[in-house]
Design a protein around this nucleic acid. Structure first.
Lengths: 202, 202
DNA sequence: GTCTATATGGCGATAGAC
DNA sequence: GTCTATCGCCATATAGAC
């Protein structure tokens, strides 16, 4: 019945669930302990403090999903392929880890410095991506001339429906989980087509 | 020197600043009192509890900005004009109240129910917008066939650069405030062009 | 209206029994 | 490893002087 998982991992997974739903400040050690079915002290036994526990989760979340993304725009694919590859992988990560976008948006304004460092450590270097996009836009003489607008549009279209899910699902999907899952699954195709049309490469 | 504002309003404005930066849980009554230069007890004198104070701000933020938006898609403008009007006003609101998107994203997953009610009370009825968009997409035989994808793209493109500002400004604008302000100002034109191209109406 | 003082409770964290 | 008990702190909130 009870799958025998090591307590340490069980805590980490439970803490991730609670932290990603309520944010750092909205989460108490008691909440995590209760949900994990263990004692509060045990949390401190494994992870010395709330901040250390949170930090572990935070880093883990990033290192697990970001590394594959940094290289795409540094490769020598044609623009269309870069876009579709990036969107595919990016949205895939969120489909498999839907808590990430909400988590990021929630903590984003409290310590952007720290978040930015984590992202850089995970291998994302936006200035390189910008440089690469800029070259492509020129070479393939595309309508859009600001690579930063391009990048923000691209990422925004991928992240937003995941980050705002609780609200969107409730307001325009009658809070129907499965309907929203189907909606999200369709976004890979949707975003790629949308982006390619927008920059007039069809 | 000291502008003689009624204490009650002074508190409300200060509280808005703190709440919108740190979120509900990240804000303490002490922080608000300190920043407002008054005593903690005075907060309770004017607003009975932290929750009541927060509630006032929350409602106020919405009622002040949303009402103008609900009607746009219900009007009889042609599609292009609806898009550009909506984007213009929407982004204008955020340019004048840049804290709103971050605020919303931060509280969004804690109590989506409450947030959805506030938005409805403020006159936004997504189901009507969806219905209207759906008719337009059919009538003007446009590539995109799912009005919900259309709406999510539209709103995401408007909100995302504001919601993720702390991170984006730091990572791809060298944390240059003014440069990012210029970037945001350009987004009105950018988003409208982008949307119209994407649905192939130029 | 605005302050000081204080009540009450939950928080993160630790000590120590088992 | 896991628990109970408890410390010290800071949170929200209230009472009461001025």
């Amino acid at each position: 019945m009870k799958p025998k998982i090591r307590t340490e991992d069980h805590i980490l997974e439970t803490a991730r669930e609670v932290f990603t739903q309520y944010g750092y400040d909205g989460t108490s050690m008691q909440m995590i302990a209760d949900r994990a079915g263990i004692n509060k002290s045990l949390l401190h036994y494994y992870y010395r403090s709330k901040e250390k526990l949170f930090g572990q989760i935070f880093s883990r979340v990033f290192s697990q999903f970001i590394p594959h993304l940094g290289v795409i725009f540094m490769s020598d694919m044609p623009l269309e392929e870069k876009i579709s590859t990036f969107v595919d992988r990016y949205i895939d990560v969120f489909l498999n880890n839907p808590y990430i976008p909400i988590f990021v948006m929630q903590e984003l304004s409290k310590n952007p410095q720290h978040l930015a460092e984590l992202i850089r450590e995970a291998g994302i270097h936006p200035e390189l991506m910008i440089e690469n996009i800029s070259q492509m836009l020129n070479r393939e003489n595309i309508r859009m001339n600001d690579p930063r607008q391009f990048l923000v549009n691209l990422i925004g279209l991928c992240i937003f429906p995941f980050a705002a899910r609780p609200l969107i699902q409730r307001m325009i999907f009658d809070n129907d989980r499965e309907a929203y899952d189907r909606f999200l699954a369709e976004r890979k195709k949707e975003v790629v087509t949308f982006m390619l049309n927008a920059i007039q490469k069809t």
